[in-house]
Amino acid sequence: MKKSLLSLLLLGLPMAALAAKLPVVASFSIVGDMTREIGGDRVDVVSLVGPDQDAHVFQPAPADVKRLSASRLFVTNGLGLEGWMGRLTKASSFKGVTVEAGKGIKTRMAPAEEGEEHGHDVVDPHAWHDPQRVQVYIRNITAGLIKADPQGKDEYQRRAADFAARVKQEDDWAAKQFAAIPAAKRKMLTSHDAFGYFGERYGIKMLAIQGVSTEAEASAKGVAQLVKQVKQEKVKAVFMENMTDKRLLEQLSKEAKVSIGGELYADALSKSDGPASTYLKLFHHNVETIMKSFR
């Protein structure tokens, strides 16, 4: 009898350990991975917008409302990326800690989407493509985890320092790679304007078919202008993205007579068996793919 009771208790331990984890909801896969890196075994992270999915056009479902209402920490990118976030938090009556991972970074302004009235520039939300700005993400997420789970402070700070060091190592490596390419050759075209921070960090001139949001549709006139610019500037690096429609880029590539250099990961990780299943893998993959076209 005692042995049977002990066996039941032992079987129950993993469930108890799981229940003790801090329930966290992340708005999309990239900040979800950063939160796992810092939180380790103390957190149970669910990303609302998963791998190969688009946070720009995401529409929360009832299941997402339920997930958020049961969580204690909500990690977002901010900077205007999640236009649906206010509706979701209101519907879920979320009472936990909300972290805006991009809060406090030096933002980049991008041209307004084609067809918008007034034509004011907008904040570019894709700051995770600059590893130096990711250091701010790390600090903000760490502070949020500590606020939601003060007992884990030492572990969160230790893991954050380790993650920050690995991000810096990738940044140093990338800077060295791009520095070896003449500035005049550092030009590339992508599906939408997601790599502005990346270009700013490494001195790369960026062209894009769409604006900072994938919701905007490029016009025939806009594509024609890009074709002309690609030819004039002799842009050789043209890239698809993992979560955008590839047909328009294929059309532009054909008209401009430039080959497509590969697939980049812009707004989402790949699935677990893909080349960009974590933030650091995403960054490394993108750098290597771009460098192949620059050489």
Rank of each mutant, 00 (worst) to 15 (best):
223 V>I: 15
68 L>G: 02
17 A>I: 06
229 Q>A: 12
208 A>R: 11
150 P>I: 12
74 F>T: 06
188 M>A: 13
215 E>K: 10
222 G>R: 07
153 K>V: 05
146 I>M: 00
280 L>G: 08
269 L>I: 09
245 D>H: 08
232 Q>N: 13
64 D>C: 14
71 S>I: 09
133 R>C: 05
275 P>F: 02
39 G>L: 06
295 R>Q: 15
230 V>F: 14
191 S>D: 04
279 Y>S: 02
180 A>H: 11
92 S>M: 15
3 K>W: 07
79 L>R: 03
294 F>A: 05
205 K>M: 14
28 F>Q: 02
81 L>M: 14
164 A>G: 09
83 G>I: 07
163 F>N: 04
160 A>L: 14
150 P>M: 15
139 R>M: 04
268 A>V: 02
197 Y>C: 07
248 L>Q: 08
136 V>L: 06
147 K>T: 15
156 Y>M: 03
81 L>I: 03
184 A>E: 07
281 K>P: 09
231 K>R: 10
43 V>S: 02
88 L>C: 03
92 S>N: 05
74 F>K: 03
198 F>V: 13
168 K>H: 06
265 Y>D: 06
252 L>G: 13
101 A>L: 03
206 M>V: 11
147 K>N: 07
158 R>T: 14
155 E>V: 15
91 A>I: 13
167 V>W: 03
275 P>K: 14
35 T>Y: 10
210 Q>V: 11
42 R>C: 01
231 K>V: 09
176 K>R: 15
199 G>K: 09
32 G>S: 03
54 D>V: 03
245 D>T: 14
16 A>Q: 06
152 G>H: 06
131 P>C: 12
88 L>Q: 01
168 K>Q: 08
59 Q>D: 09
157 Q>D: 00
111 P>Q: 02
222 G>W: 07
45 V>P: 01
104 G>E: 06
195 F>D: 00
194 A>Q: 01
260 I>E: 00
87 R>D: 10
124 D>F: 09
37 E>L: 09
281 K>Y: 07
80 G>L: 09
243 M>G: 05
70 A>R: 14
277 S>V: 10
277 S>L: 02
10 L>F: 03
267 D>S: 03
110 A>P: 06
114 E>Q: 15
280 L>F: 01
